[in-house]
Design a protein around this nucleic acid. Structure first.
Length: 927
RNA sequence: GCGGAUGUGGUGAAAUUGGUAGACACGCCAGACUUAGGAUCUGGUGCCGCGAGGCAUGUAGGUUCGAGUCCUAUCAUCCGCACCA
């Protein structure tokens, strides 16, 4: 029997025991209600875990264990998002196969995770880079490839249904999402060749090939998603990114824009998260309006959200890349226009972004005609109009739009005021509340009302139509990389065809070198024997050389955990019907518009195709805050090896250096450890304050180069996993970001030792007895039951930890060693400190595991009070407190309060105007 | 510029519905025990004031018997998006 709290020994013992007994194995077959608790699975990077990573893992683990005690069948799995760029970069540098480094990294992660005592069912572990997993990623990709979005039914359907529609009525009722102008009849369709038909179907498929400008990063040799490009440079490495046309796979996520928006109403995400997604989707309602070009047969369609301002249009602006620019430009302006277009072309994305404020543009010489009043307005081109949004052309209303206003001022274009006093001539006013003037039939109408009137009129007169636009683009789904899922596609004479499902997985071939191919082709292009398949004469069979992006495997992984070893399908329908949505999903905010959006899309497609029974993957999402590093700084007197304490540094000329946080206690530097830290500092001298060396502090991202990373292994070794778990929770609300501070962990450690001493006396040994608990002990216990139950359910773990401290402090004061009380406390505490609780559970004579104990039931009767210490205020200011029976009625209470000598003193003999009495809360006397 | 979040002691924070602001810890101060200890225990600790008392939840107003909590304005910090017509 272990007498003292020997956490090292007992934590090892129980971790081994739980593994041996299969304590965390979860069955898909249970009569209990289900609960699915999921962490965003990590990318197994070479750096391993720092103290920031486990925050969310610990929270979800506590919640899982709590739900299990509450009688749920809890699915709580873990795995690895193992495809990705860093492993490939490392392979390029060292020649080591990414699979090898990934596996080594996974082993490190696993060891670190095991140290903390998580309740994962490791028999369900998945790894997105294993063929047995990505077989199904490929399979689901083929589902996307084999589907189209039926806008009438608002759902995805098999492409076969579309072929049947084309055969009987062409595409007359099925607007083509890839090419809005495309119209063909059944006869046309039936007369087309196979290639022509396939080309058309490609314009409808949910996973499709298209030539498109992509973010090409020459330094990384790959194409990046919009969300991987930050201010014109790559998120990883900060390399410049340019536009390049390439044939790429895309997911037609834009067809799901509305459903992705609507779905947000049905899930519990934070407002911030929902807003980020809404913002990314960027829905706007407006109208497309056709303007004729004067003296030409051409017309230009503009997109506007403000059709009401149609009479304030003073000019029109086209994107420099707009297809009509060449044909409408007059001879006089042709040189200027082509110079301007060349200038725009020469500017990198980065420059354009950096110089947003700069106003540039060029007049085309042409004029458009306002369809309502026949006014001729000049047509300009400018880079502030984007080719990829709306129609790539705008009607400019300088009195109502800041950019149009700036443009008009800059180029001296006269401004028409249609909003009277609301426009001051100094800056545009984008109001929707003004009353229109100078606006013909709209004069006197409020703008909001006019929007509808104009839109109506435009449609009546055939001048255009109402139109909804989205900022969101279709998602690029090709990466010119090696370390990703190969596409299960074969090009037969250039026509992409799905591989036979029976031939999956299409495994990644071994390559000699991981460098990208020429012209942005992926490394797979170099493996010619893999790329070119044997075929009959006259037929070429070629594989796709791109691979899928990082978010492919993570878009559906939550389904695989349910049925991880199924060889027949990605997840049996009965099993996904049982587990359903993830009930609690915990992870960082950085995936707001990447992973979460794509994952929601895949889930909706699988739902539409009848492969699963729900269309939102995550019922509730909680974003854990980021734990930043708290760096420590030392100040070296310039040109010396002398270090001055922070308080005295201003007296010297110093250089600021980062020092390893692990050799600093709070802000006090361990000077001996510092000397040993690096050879250069072996002879360091110190200028001390009060005999101590104090460091400066700085809060910044944890990174090795700043020496501010704290490794959980070290803390677990020093204080134990239970202390570490509780301390991470005690730091503050899970969702809050905060700098890591190791100081304070001892308070939690002391708490656990104090808890231990309720059970063991260092001289007498086990002191738990079978006496019946008294009223005070039961009150303490039941208050704690209520608080822990509430707090854990609402994920307020920091307050739960403090409630445990209050409880143990009280029981210690009560000298309570009664089994009936302590046993229940252990069950409450075991989600937080599982190792110690299991040990004590066994020590007090239980044979089974505490993992399967029942959560204590709160009983009101033990916590009811008969007397309340009422706060008594006079004119809202607290003056005293009085103990009064809780069931006392107002009249009685008023009498007692008024008789109180403190109250008498403040009344100064006056009569109170009013007495406010809230039963069980407070008394306020108003004079 | 747009959107979101957050501002409370020396520090991390608590206050779930408007009702005793600062629970629980860290740190600090004093003491006990032990001959050193980074062990354990006890007491104290928002600020000003000898005291009665006064002042305190970024700032300024407002609603209310009563505001950290609701409303209006404003400042600061952080995050996301950003020439999206």
């Amino acid at each position: 029997m272990i007498m003292e709290y020997n956490f090292r020994q007992l934590e090892r013992k129980w971790q081994d025991h739980w593994v041996k007994s299969g304590a965390y194995k979860v069955s898909n077959d249970s009569s209990k209600p289900k609960c699915y608790v999921l962490d965003m699975f990590p990318y197994p990077s070479g750096a391993g875990l720092h103290v920031g990573h486990p925050l969310g893992f610990i929270a979800s683990d506590i919640y899982s264990r709590y739900k299990r005690l509450k009688g749920y069948n809890v699915l709580h799995p873990m795995g690895y998002d193992a495809f990705g760029l860093p492993a490939e970069q490392y392979a390029i540098e060292t020649g080591q196969h990414p699979a090898v480094t990934t596996e080594a990294n996974i082993r490190t992660f696993r060891k670190q995770l095991d140290n903390i005592g998580f309740s994962y069912d490791w028999s369900r572990e998945i790894n997105t880079s294993e063929p047995a997993y990505y077989k199904w990623t490929q399979h689901i990709f083929l589902q996307l490839f084999g589907s189209w979005y039926n806008r009438h039914a608002a759902k995805a359907e098999s492409i076969e249904t579309l072929v049947r529609i084309f055969e009987s009525e062409g595409n007359l009722h099925q607007e083509c999402p890839g090419d809005r102008g495309l119209r063909f009849s059944a006869d046309t369709w039936n007369g087309w060749t196979y290639e022509e038909q396939q080309q058309t179907l490609m314009e409808y498929r949910l996973a499709y090939l298209a030539y498109a400008e992509v973010n090409w990063c020459p330094a990384l040799g790959t194409v990046l998603a919009n969300d991987e490009v930050i201010n014109g440079v790559s998120e990883r490495g900060g390399h410049p990114v340019i536009k390049k046309k390439m044939r790429q796979w895309f997911l037609r996520i834009t067809e799901y824009a509305d459903r992705l928006l609507e779905g947000l109403e049905t899930v519990q995400f934070s407002e911030a998260m929902k807003d980020m997604q809404r913002n990314w989707i960027g829905k706007s309602q407006g109208a497309e309006i056709k303007f004729n070009v004067a003296g030409s047969l051409e017309n230009i369609v503009v997109y506007t959200t403000r059709p009401d301002t149609i009479f304030g249009v003073d000019f029109m602006v086209l994107a420099p890349e707009h297809e009509l620019v060449e044909s409408i430009t007059t001879d006089e302006q042709s040189q200027a226009v082509s110079d301007y277009r060349e200038y725009v072309q020469s500017r990198s994305e980065r420059e354009r972004m950096a110089e947003v404020k700069q106003i540039t543009g060029c007049f085309t010489g042409a004029y458009a005609v306002n369809p309502f009043d026949g006014r001729k307005i000049p047509i300009w081109i400018s880079e502030y109009v984007l080719a990829g949004y709306g129609t790539g052309a705008i009607m400019a209303v300088p009195c109502g739009d800041a950019r149009d206003f700036g443009f008009a001022k800059h180029f001296n274009i006269p401004i028409t005021n249609i909003i009277g006093d609301a426009f001051n001539g100094e800056e545009a006013n984008a109001t929707k509340d003004a009353v229109l003037q100078n606006s013909d039939f709209l004069n006197g109408k409020p703008m909001r009302e006019a929007m509808g009137i104009v839109a109506e009129k435009i449609e009546q007169l055939g001048l255009g139509r109402r139109q909804v636009n989205f900022k969101m683009r279709d998602a690029g789904f090709s990466r010119q990389r090696y370390w990703g899922e190969p596409f299960p596609i074969v090009f037969r004479n250039g026509v992409p065809e799905a591989m036979d499902v029976a031939d999956l997985p299409l495994e990644l071939p071994h390559v000699e070198n991981y460098r990208p191919g020429e012209e942005g082709e992926g490394p797979l292009a170099n493996v010619t024997e893999w790329v070119n398949l044997p075929s009959e004469a006259g037929t070429s069979l070629r594989r796709e050389t791109n691979t899928m992006p990082g978010y492919a495997g993570s878009s559906w992984y939550f389904l695989r955990y349910m049925d991880p070893r199924n060889a027949e399908t990605f997840c049996d329908r009965k099993v996904s019907d049982y587990w359903g949505q993830v009930d609690l999903y915990i992870g960082g905010t950085e995936h707001a518009v990447g992973h979460l959006l794509y994952s929601r899309l895949w889930t909706k497609v699988l739902f539409d195709l009848g492969l699963i029974g729900f269309e939102e993957p995550y019922r509730k999402l909680v974003n854990q805050g980021m734990i930043t590093g708290s760096s420590r700084l030392v100040y070296r007197v310039r040109g010396t090896n002398q270090f001055v304490s922070a308080g005295l540094k201003d007296k010297y000329e110093t250089d600021e250096l980062h020092v390893d946080v692990n050799i600093v206690d709070g802000v006090e530097l361990d000077t001996e450890a510092f000397k040993k830290w690096r050879p250069d500092y072996a002879n360091a001298q110190f200028i001390l304050e009060d005999g101590k060396y104090f460091c400066g502090t700085l809060s910044e991202k944890m990174s090795k180069s700043k020496f501010n990373t704290v490794n959980p292994d070290m803390l677990v070794d020093k204080f134990g996993a239970d202390t570490f778990r509780m301390y991470e929770m005690f730091l503050g609300p899970v969702e809050q970001s905060k700098p890591w501070e190791t100081k304070g962990i001892e308070g939690v450690h002391r708490f656990l030792k104090k808890t231990w001493r309720l059970f063991f006396d260092e001289n007498k040994g086990l002191i738990v007895n079978n006496e019946a608990p008294g009223a005070e002990e039961l009150k303490t216990l039941h208050r704690t039951i209520r608080k822990i139950d509430d707090d854990t359910e609402r994920l307020s773990f920091n307050t739960a930890v403090s409630a445990f401290m209050v409880c143990v402090n009280e029981l210690t004061d009560q000298k309570c060693s009664k089994k009936a009380v302590l046993e229940q406390l252990l069950v409450l505490l075991t989600p937080y400190a599982p190792h110690m609780c299991e040990e004590l559970w066994q020590a007090i004579g239980n044979s089974g595991s505490i993992l399967d104990a029942a959560f204590p039931v709160f009983e009101e009767k033990y916590v009811v009070e008969s007397v309340k210490e009422y706060p008594v205020s006079v004119n809202g200011k607290l003056r005293t407190t009085i103990n009064i029976a809780l069931d006392a009625e107002a009249a009685e209470v008023e009498q007692i309060a008024l008789a109180n000598e403190v109250v008498q003193k403040w009344l100064e003999g006056k009569q109170p105007k009013k007495i406010i009495f809230v039963k069980g809360k407070m008394i306020n006397i108003v004079i």
